[in-house]
Design a binder for these strands. Structure first.
Lengths: 337, 337
DNA sequence: ATGTTTATTTTGAACGTTCACAAAACGCTT
DNA sequence: AAGCGTTTTGTGAACGTTCAAAATAAACAT
């Protein structure tokens, strides 16, 4: 079963290979009859184009990459899945590359670009640590999802995100509005360009505005995994028992924390009100359901792909800010001293 | 910034391009000194090999695919992520292709194979519906993860899975052992080759062995999503309230069901004992934690990649069966009438 | 020296496309 | 019938590799 090439199609349809190529690439300069004839042969011979050959010749591919920083981050994984999906519907394939905290995301993208001739790249959960500037010289269209626009000011790269700072602030504002004064915080700051870290800065800002001093002992660092969140909450509990609310940097963290609270004999929301962030599907299915600020995953994914395509067409440096609506769950209640 | 090719390296190192090629591909027939010299130039010029060109010439790629049936299936997504990860560590890239229930997985793989010259394919959550035989003629190394070996009998494809039938049976055996007689079931059968469906057949077998008639009204069909599971449980509850246990075909289903039970005023495990399957990380963090039979995701992923690599080297039709250990959670208890 | 074997290197033709350019065909005007 | 513009088609050279075969160099035996 020899492989069917464009040449076979050309012979069978009695045209030159370049004509076949033109038909396959939907060029306008080919006669309708010829096109039909070629298409019929393509169908008949079950021809499918060799992407490698095309890519080689064209110096670029129909391939883009999603570089995902941090494994086992449910929200980002979900986002990647959506991007894959949306891309597929638009005939755009994505290569997913999961990298570790210590890996250099630009190095990864650069190698991928040179090795595979990527046509674009979407960064998920990037913290923009390294030499963005260096990277710009590649002129590979890039979109940073979940990265605050201000950190890309003056760059040609696009971004899409919710306002993490404001959302963190809103969450704590809400808790304070419910009468809470001693509020635990769970998450991590990371470098200042880390967008999820911004949620904590927002939370602090809220405290400051309400004249509540920030209390170190009510904060514990943890990453986006259940065990880490559980451990973090446990650590806080070993120091303090007098807080009445918790803002967790993400839903996953909130889940782990809730479990820890309950395991320590506390009730949510009776003893502790909990607010998360991300708006994962699971948030509605915990007991009690989790109040959270929803990152619109679907919009972020759609927008990422759209921005990437726009960047490929030359439009750069566009920044989309999406709202993170509050989703009421059963995990919060009014606090009375 | 012109692109650095093998030709540039050859010129700089004063050898022919084929020598460079041989160095790059670790061929033995090249002098140690020459090799070192070439390598130094590669380093100096920052040469990176154009995968498209190599793939074109070689008629195959360093690329494999993961064809994942069913979106939003947490367990399979997790598996895909692990495979990606393991592959990357072994220098093997995977293209992830998520397909819908209605899509033909072989057609997808075939197109991908012809278009991209895949080197192999791992199927996740396949139900082997279509013309496996047809597909075999492609001679693309394939591994079916989460598919029972017996459905691949006589095929050249390999597989890795836990025994779904036995596990379903074990789960219900356990519930019966705890004194439960009226046991609700949640999940779906699908085609007989659907491996997750086997869990329900196993459950039925357990009932039969214990002389408990299978009761239609205690079963409801649902897929692997939280809302679907919730709706399924709700449907059962609208008919019956007298069951004391539930076997859910997967953890996700169990989560949705537990929420529904609790929303209807029932307590887990006081009123209803629940057993899930998959052993997701979340199972340990629900309230109460979920008793489940763990599919060893990491082993499945590792084994899939190993089997795929073996298949590429010619070894075919190997089937690995992994144990699904029980993980005790707080969601089950003894039943007394 | 001369042949023979072995180790190393080079030559040049692929792989299956795309694309700039040249050529041909057609339609229309003069 | 020649000229001209437009549409359609064909030619042939890339793209950056790999690989079989040929060529060369080195090592050794006669």
């Amino acid at each position: 079963m020899r492989i069917v090439t464009i040449r076979d199609v050309a012979k069978e349809a009695q045209v030159s290979i370049s004509t076949v190529s033109r038909v396959l690439n939907d060029r306008p300069d080919v006669d309708a009859l010829t096109r039909a004839r070629v298409l019929k042969v393509v169908e008949k011979l079950q021809y499918v184009r060799n992407a490698n050959a095309a890519n080689l010749k064209q110096q670029h591919t129909d391939f883009s990459a999603v570089v995902l920083r941090g494994r086992r981050n449910l929200f980002l994984t979900d986002l990647a899945e959506r991007i894959l999906d949306i891309g597929r519907r638009r005939g755009r394939r994505f290569l997913i590359e999961i990298i570790d905290e210590k890996d250099d995301e630009f190095e990864t993208a650069r190698t991928l670009y040179r090795e595979r001739k990527l046509s674009g790249c979407i960064f998920l959960g990037s913290n923009l640590q390294q030499h963005v500037h260096d990277f710009e010289t590649l002129d590979l269209p890039c979109v940073f999802a979940t990265v605050q626009a201000e950190f890309l000011a003056g760059r040609q790269f696009s971004s899409v995100a919710v306002n993490n700072f404001d959302t963190g602030k809103a969450a704590v504002d809400r808790l304070i509005g419910l009468g809470h004064r001693r509020i635990a915080l769970l998450g991590f700051y990371g470098p200042v360009t880390n967008s999820t870290g911004q949620r904590l800065y927002g939370a602090q800002e809220s405290l400051r505005r309400h004249g509540i001093p920030y209390d170190e002992s009510l904060f514990e660092e943890c990453d986006f995994t259940l065990p880490s969140a559980y451990a973090g909450m446990t650590a806080v509990l070993s120091r303090r028992r007098d807080f009445s609310a918790l803002f967790a940097i993400s839903d996953i963290v909130a889940f782990g924390a809730m479990k820890a609270l309950i395991d320590h004999g506390l009730s949510v929301p009776r003893d502790v009100s909990v607010i998360g962030m991300d708006g994962t599907e699971q948030a509605a299915y915990t007991v009690p359901s989790l109040s959270t600020y929803a990152q619109p995953a679907d919009d972020i994914a759609t927008e990422s792909v759209r921005l990437l395509e726009a960047a490929m067409r030359g439009q750069k440096g566009k920044h989309v800010l999406l709202p993170a609506p509050f989703i009421q769950g059963g995990s919060i209640k009014k606090h009375v001293e």
